[in-house]
Simulated assay, not measured.
Amino acid sequence: MGKEVLGKCPVCNSETIVTKISCENCNTTIEGEFTLCKFCRLTAEQKQFIDTFIKCRGNIKEMEKELGVSYPTVKNRLEDVAAALGHKPQPIIEDDGRKKEILERLNAGEISFDEAMELLKG
């Protein structure tokens, strides 16, 4: 059996193409320009991460244990793989301090739990 195809050029890091496909059984050969699937372009480390992710069924806590890394490291690696697959990063929602103010008011007894929940929804 042959080696795994390189998704990135080892010299310039550009995406590669496959130009020849051969069947070991019947010796049929097809030549042309074939693109690789997006998973073929992942690094070996990224592929291993995806394999572990699937093994853990996407459970981040299990990923932390399996990889021996922190939650933020798992999230960062997941974002890295998502970006490598062409997915845009999730926007970071800025908290303007409103949630903290609502929770402080709740803690001080100024508003009820239900009022706080309603304010947090809006």
Rank of each mutant, 00 (worst) to 15 (best):
S22Q: 14
K65P: 04
K3A: 09
K100Q: 13
E45P: 00
K55E: 12
G7L: 03
D51I: 08
V5I: 15
L6E: 14
L78N: 00
Q48I: 04
S22R: 13
L36Q: 12
L36A: 06
G86R: 02
A44S: 10
E62V: 00
E110P: 07
K61D: 08
G2N: 15
E66V: 07
P10L: 01
R41K: 11
N59K: 01
F34V: 07
K75A: 02
T73W: 05
K88V: 05
T29R: 12
N59M: 13
I60V: 15
D95H: 08
D96Q: 10
M63F: 05
Y71H: 13
K99L: 13
I54R: 11
L78S: 01
R98K: 15
T29K: 14
T16R: 06
N13E: 14
K61M: 06
G2C: 09
G122P: 05
T52L: 07
E45L: 03
A83S: 08
A116V: 08
G97P: 07
G58V: 00
I102L: 08
R41N: 05
H87S: 07
V5N: 03
G109A: 06
L103P: 14
T28E: 10
E79G: 00
A108M: 13
A116Q: 11
L67R: 12
Q48R: 09
I17N: 14
A84G: 01
L67D: 04
L67P: 05
T16S: 06
R105Y: 07
I102H: 02
D80M: 06
S14M: 13
F113C: 14
M117E: 14
E33Q: 15
T28H: 15
R57V: 04
S14D: 15
M1T: 10
M117P: 03
C37R: 07
P72R: 09
C23L: 10
S70V: 06
C56T: 04
R77L: 10
K88E: 05
